[in-house]
């Protein structure tokens, strides 16, 4: 029985976290400003008040220590959900993530489990200062031992955070901060998809747009604009970036013959490179055109007044669709 509620992604994440904390007393939330303030984006608002300072912990300002201490806590059966305040602040924790979190299960031949969720608000489009608009997802997706997911709408945000917390493997949970305040219908009673599954969010016949996180809405907007010109575009939300679930993508590309991968992160060695390679491996004879990529450029994130030029938008996406269709 569905229970539909309209809410923002922030609220959906908050209610998802709350549900996980109510369900399992070993779930704890830690990070900078997550307690009393409720997080700079208010994702953890009210949790400390209801669950106490022990389970919702304002940490000192040190990202490596947030991850390092979370690791120690897993040795006692805790399931830490850590918040990295902004994408660009995760790098001090990179060593603990790739050298410890990703490896301890492997290093111990399976005896140690690292059920840590690393929440990272990421991506641009909000006019932020430097280090507040990065898209570092590929750096985690390329690290064996981590699972990396990204939600694109409030319903998925609400459920994927709970599924990530329930996972016995470490999950890097990428939250598209430019979509934090957009509303959507959330079914708080049930969801149909598991965590590590992609899905078709708009069916179409002429081309396949592959996106995740903040670019899903941009791609849906692009498809809507194309529809007015009689072009029927299918849009797929990857949802999981590592492992990739490309079955629906292959199925789609075999029908459309054309694929365009879209992300904010820089092009070279971004997710688009991997997706493009796998589409080529699996759908070679179905392809009518090379897989196109619409991405951020290979530069550090630019000053925000030109970010609209840097970020993939409708025009660049539809231009790529046109190029694919012109082959």
């Amino acid at each position: 029985m569905s229970e539909l509620t309209k809410m923002t992604m922030v609220k959906a994440l908050n209610s998802g976290l709350r549900a996980s904390m109510e369900h399992d007393p070993k779930v704890i939330v830690m990070g900078e400003d997550v307690g009393r303030l409720g997080g700079v984006f208010r994702v953890t608002e009210g949790l400390q008040k209801d669950f106490g300072e022990g389970r919702v912990m304002d940490t000192p300002l040190a990202e490596s220590a947030i991850l390092g201490t979370a690791i120690g806590m897993t040795f006692r059966g805790f399931r830490p959900v850590v918040e990295i305040q902004f994408d660009g602040f995760v790098y001090p924790a990179y060593d603990q993530i790739v050298s410890q979190v990703a490896r301890l299960h492997f290093r111990s031949r399976g005896s140690v489990r690292m059920p840590i969720v690393i929440r990272i608000p990421y991506g641009g489009g909000i006019g932020a200062v430097e280090h507040h608009s990065d898209s570092p997802e590929a750096q985690f997706a390329m690290t064996a031992g981590l699972k990396v997911v990204s939600c694109a709408d409030p319903h998925d945000a609400h459920w994927m955070i709970q599924q990530a917390i329930a996972s016995d493997d470490p999950v890097v949970f990428m939250e598209p901060k430019r979509r934090y305040w957009e509303t959507g219908m959330v079914d708080t009673a049930e969801t149909t998809l598991p965590l590590l599954a992609s899905r078709v969010v708009r069916p179409g016949r002429d081309a396949t747009l592959v996106a995740y996180g903040p670019m899903v809405k941009t791609c849906l907007d692009s498809a809507a604009a194309a529809a007015e010109e009689g072009v029927d575009i299918e849009v797929i939300d990857l949802r999981t970036l590592s492992p990739l679930d490309l079955g629906p993508v292959f199925e789609s590309v075999r029908r459309t013959g054309r694929a365009v991968v879209v992300h904010e992160a820089a092009r070279t060695l971004g997710l688009g490179a991997e997706v493009s390679a796998r589409i080529t491996e699996e759908c070679f004879y179905a392809l009518e055109a090379p897989v196109q990529r619409v991405t951020g450029y290979d530069m550090p994130y630019p000053p925000s007044r030109v970010e609209d030029e840097f970020l993939p938008g409708l025009d660049r996406i539809l231009d790529a669709v046109d190029r694919a269709r012109a082959y």
């Binding site: 022990g54 390092g68 201490t69 120690g72 806590m73 006692r76 805790f78 603990q96 410890q100």
Partner: peptide, 12 residues
């Protein structure tokens, strides 16, 4: 840091 986190968990 792992030892510190473990100790914090002991307190919890």
């Amino acid at each position: 840091l792992h030892a510190t986190g473990y100790a914090m968990a002991l307190t919890l």
